[in-house]
Write a protein that binds this DNA or RNA. Structure first.
Length: 581
RNA sequence: GCACCCGUAGCUCAGCUGGAUAGAGUGUCGCCCUCCGAAGGCGAAGGUCGCAGGUUCGAAUCCUGCCGGGUGCGCCA
């Protein structure tokens, strides 16, 4: 699937090449001045700079070649050497009918690492962005033809495990697992529930903070766990199983799915051989009792601390498991890219890990990339908190969004003809759509302010507005079916239809741009513009009430095409459209 | 101290591989429902793009230095 601008670029590239200039100057994009033209090519200006020639003269030569192609209705030179282009309606009509969304495999594979959850900890608002952005990226890369493997990469092997174990030891909840003489087998039933863990972990964490002796115990337990102590390992298995069950439910309610449920612990067997390999390659050093890999490079603008592979107490850190995970992924998937959708605050960490991986050449052919993101803040501009000042759990946030959506629907008289059950389902989709759209429509790296009232509006640039727009089109098409109206491929006959078709034909570029920048906000913007252009078309034209049968059929076809594109983009954003509302 | 991210309309934000008159939503003010869902459409007002230099025919965009906010900086994740 390739968009209209790409097609025009290919034509312009040939024209530049025929003039003995670099093809790269032929890039055509949607015009910045829609009042002057549909598309523009600025290449003549850049070409003139490198060739030390007159830009207008180059533009003229290229334009003369472009004029020979019947796809263009207009080729004009403006200002210092812009080439302004309009596409013939016949060409738009032809392409509008042929547009489709089947991804063509591009032969490349990517592992996307997102979710950011930890064993034994409930998901809170901090996990929202990683989940929502990561899920959008996995959907986008798939839609663009990549082979995608998504992995939660659970935090399940660090100090927090030792903290849990030692806290449980203190409480005497499950003494069997601490009995060094016990030979097993251990019970299948977990001695703790997810609810227990949610209470135990904060207590353990606080105890370690308050008392250095407790922290030391937790460190020891962590090292023992990692060294394979059977009772601890058995306890860990329970933590993992219980947590996974809870996490799957939470992500399920968000509509987020992972291909792999691996974690730090799952690469544990790879750590020892990897460290041996790193030593053999001579990249390691012993520093202050720890095994480290220096990663500072010539020309670094900032201080770059070494990556610690093994702490002085023998335990490993998450940098070590991250490296072993790269080894695992190269072995299992051999991807072209590994993308980490993790809080921007961890950027330095990833820079360190990536440097070690490249230095030791353990990343195969994979590019390693950290796609960081900013935080969701409260109206005070600080990271989002509950009224009580605590961290809000994710399912409470979703419940809040759903309740607000239901309230809005009542106020606006939306979905008033539906039964209670359907209404609840709609409110849930709308609440989630509001939340996801608000999160995704900001540029990834910037922080944004959570504003319940604004996010759930049915007007403006919001998820609910887009869902509503899609539902309206569905409603028109349902009526068309009821009234026995036929549909036909859309034909461009008016300015509004032309603008709408141009927008439809720009979808591949939007998807490509979103992929290149790992920027879901590009898709949000696209979806909103599409909905707006449809509204303009809708307000200016009769559809079902159009008396000319051919025109009516073509407009119904345009509704179908628009709905398909809108639904497609919303699907990539992870936003569901209700049947009706 | 050093580094990274950010600073654009009253508010919330796009735009940042340099290009024409800097955009959107919201808010404010007009106009448009005897016609398919007005949650909409059309229009107006609103900006020294943090500040100062530099590169360039051309800078919100690239470079340098300041100012302001956020974040990070070897044995947490």
């Amino acid at each position: 699937m390739s968009g209209l601008a790409s097609e025009l670029s290919a034509i312009a590239r040939q024209a530049f090449a025929a003039e003995g200039l670099s093809e790269s100057f032929g890039q055509v994009q949607a015009s910045d001045r829609p009042d002057l033209a549909q598309f523009q090519c600025n290449g003549a200006l850049a070409a003139a700079k490198s060739a030390k020639a007159n830009p207008r003269a180059i533009a003229q030569k290229v334009a003369d070649r472009l004029k020979a192609n019947p796809i263009f209705a207009k080729v004009e030179i403006a200002g210092p050497g812009f080439i302004n282009l309009d596409v013939a309606d016949a060409a738009l009509t032809e392409r509008a009918a042929a547009s489709g969304f089947d991804p063509k495999p591009n032969g490349k594979s990517v592992v996307i690492d997102f979710g950011g959850a930890n064993v034994a900890k409930p998901m809170h608002v901090g996990h929202l962005r990683s989940s929502v952005i990561g899920d959008c990226l996995q959907r986008l890369f798939r839609a663009n033809g990549w082979h995608v493997v998504s992995d939660v990469h659970l935090g399940d092997w660090g100090l927090q495990m030792g903290q849990l174990i030692s806290e449980i030891g203190h409480r005497g909840i499950a003494p069997l697992y601490f009995d060094a003489d016990f030979k097993g087998p251990y019970p299948e039933q977990s001695p703790v529930t997810m609810e227990d863990l949610e209470e135990i972990y904060p207590a353990a964490s606080a105890a370690c903070k308050a008392d250095p002796a407790r922290l030391e115990e937790a460190r020891k337990a962590t090292a023992d766990l990692q060294a394979g102590r059977p009772g601890y390992r058995a306890l860990w298995e329970h933590f993992f199983a219980v947590s996974k069950f809870g996490l799957e439910r939470e992500w399920g309610s968000l509509g987020v799915h992972f291909d792999l449920w691996k974690g730090e612990a799952s690469v544990e067997p790879l750590i020892a051989p990897m460290i041996a390999d790193l030593k053999a390659r001579g990249v390691t050093e012993v520093s202050e009792g720890a095994l480290v890999v220096p990663v500072a490079q010539e020309g670094d603008k900032k201080e770059m601390p070494p990556l610690i592979l093994i702490k002085s107490d023998g335990a490993v850190l998450y940098g070590t498991t991250d490296l072993a995970t790269i080894v695992d992924r190269v072995k299992e998937q051999d991807p072209d890219l590994i993308l980490y959708v993790v809080d921007q605050r961890q950027h330095l960490h990833f820079e360190q890990v990536f440097r070690v991986a490249r230095k030791a050449r353990i990343n195969g052919k994979a590019e390693l990339e950290h796609a960081g993101f900013g935080t969701m803040n409260g109206t005070d501009g600080k990271p989002f908190k509950t009224r009580a000042g605590g961290v809000m759990k994710l399912h409470d946030l979703i419940a809040t969004m759903t309740a607000e959506a239901a309230k809005r629907m009542d106020e606006q008289g939306i979905a008033k003809d539906t039964g209670a059950e359907e209404r609840a389902g709609i409110a849930r989709k709308v609440g989630l759509g509001a939340l996801k759209f608000a999160d995704l429509s900001n540029f990834r790296l910037t922080d944004y302010i959570f504003d319940l009232e604004r996010f759930t509006r049915f007007e403006g640039k919001t998820g609910p507005y887009l869902q509503y727009a899609a539902v309206r089109i569905q409603s028109i098409l349902r009526r068309a079916g009821d009234e026995g109206h036929a549909s036909a491929p859309p034909v461009v006959r008016s300015a509004e239809e032309r603008a709408l078709v141009l927008q439809l034909l720009a979808l591949p570029e939007a998807m490509a741009a979103a992929e290149n920048n790992r920027a879901p906000n590009v898709l949000c913007e696209y979806a909103f513009e599409l909905a707006q252009k449809f509204s303009r078309f809708y307000s200016e034209h009769h559809i079902l009430s159009e008396s000319d049968e051919a025109v009516r059929a073509s407009r119904i076809g345009l509704c179908e095409t628009t709905l398909a594109a809108l639904t497609k983009v919303l699907d990539i954003l992870g936003i569901e459209v209700p049947e009706r509302m």
